[in-house]
Amino acid sequence: MPDWLTPSHFIMLGLLLSFAIAHSGLAALRPWGEQRIGARLYRVLFALVSLPLATGLIIYFFNHRYDGQQFWQLQGVPGIESIVWWLSAISFLFLYPATFNLLEIAAVQKPEVHLYETGIIRITRHPQMVGQIIWCIAHTLWLGTSFMVVTSIGLILHHLFGVWHGDRRLSDRYGEAFEAVKVRTSVIPFVAILQGHQTLKFAEFIRPAYVGVAGFILLLWWAHPLLIQATANVPW
């Protein structure tokens, strides 16, 4: 193997695979689990498994993001930093869409499975997949390393699997109702709108959750250097 193909590349793929199996596996087992321990407790279990795995992924990514081969170096090119930040901000608007009930996510209210067709779902039926691809493009452009390329491939593959997995679970639960939603929405952004199956309603985006996401983006922009410093103290 070439010298630049460090063990961290394979460790990152292993961490991504572990997270994907746990996250998607628990999502698939949700109906079975909720029947036995209840929706709230299952959501707590889901969080207790997913959040530590995600935290470990983030720490390892920060500490090894410059590993391997440097394919390109664009960080000194004028305008690149602004492009990366804007793409990252847009990615979070898709990654954390306001179609979710935050009280259900926190298990304050009973978590439910919803069949959404409003807000950002009018743009794409799988906003998290779109947001993850945009995030990967931005960070791959900025870092330009083989480790980042491997990380992006792993993340995108997981979210592409999530497209199939999510549609299958909604189809199993809602049947013909979901098939009708599939006709009126699209996986690729704006395709359903261009085909005339869907129209944007900007009033649906005026919601407190979107304000929360915007605030999170600003907080992340401010705390990004601190986050890098903090993870550097973790010997991993």
Rank of each mutant, 00 (worst) to 15 (best):
M1A: 11
T6V: 12
P7T: 10
H9N: 09
M12I: 14
L13A: 09
G14F: 14
L15A: 03
L15Y: 13
L17C: 07
L17M: 05
L17P: 00
A22V: 11
S24N: 15
G25K: 13
A28Y: 04
A28T: 09
A28G: 07
P31M: 06
P31A: 03
P31N: 07
G33W: 01
Q35P: 01
R36C: 02
R40C: 01
Y42P: 00
Y42M: 02
A47W: 08
A47M: 14
V49R: 10
S50A: 09
L51V: 13
L53F: 11
L57H: 05
I59A: 15
I59E: 06
Y60T: 07
N63T: 13
N63Y: 12
N63M: 11
G68H: 05
G68I: 10
Q70W: 10
W72D: 00
L74N: 08
Q75M: 10
V77D: 00
P78D: 05
I80R: 00
S82C: 01
V84A: 11
W85Y: 13
L87E: 02
S88V: 07
S88Q: 08
I90W: 03
S91F: 12
P97F: 08
A98V: 09
N101L: 04
L103W: 02
L103N: 11
Q109K: 15
K110A: 10
P111D: 01
E112P: 01
L115N: 07
E117A: 04
G119H: 06
I123M: 13
R125L: 03
R125W: 04
R125D: 01
G131Q: 03
Q132C: 12
I134M: 07
W135I: 06
W135Q: 10
C136H: 02
I137Y: 04
H139N: 15
H139Q: 14
T140A: 11
W142D: 00
W142R: 03
G144W: 02
S146N: 06
F147V: 08
M148A: 14
V149H: 03
V149Q: 06
V149T: 09
T151D: 09
T151H: 08
L155E: 06
L155F: 12
I156Q: 02
I156Y: 02
L157Y: 05
F161D: 03
F161I: 09
V163S: 07
H165M: 10
G166W: 05
G166L: 05
L170K: 15
L170W: 07
S171P: 05
D172Y: 09
D172L: 09
G175Q: 04
A177V: 11
F178T: 04
E179R: 15
A180Q: 15
A180F: 01
V181R: 09
K182A: 01
P189C: 05
P189W: 05
P189T: 03
V191Q: 08
Q195N: 14
G196W: 08
T199H: 15
T199S: 12
T199E: 15
L200P: 00
K201F: 10
F205Y: 15
I206Y: 10
R207S: 10
P208D: 09
Y210D: 01
A214K: 00
G215E: 12
I217R: 01
L219P: 01
W221L: 13
W222P: 00
L226M: 12
L226W: 14
L227D: 12
L227I: 15
L227S: 13
I228R: 06
A230H: 14
A230S: 14
T231W: 10
A232H: 13
A232D: 12
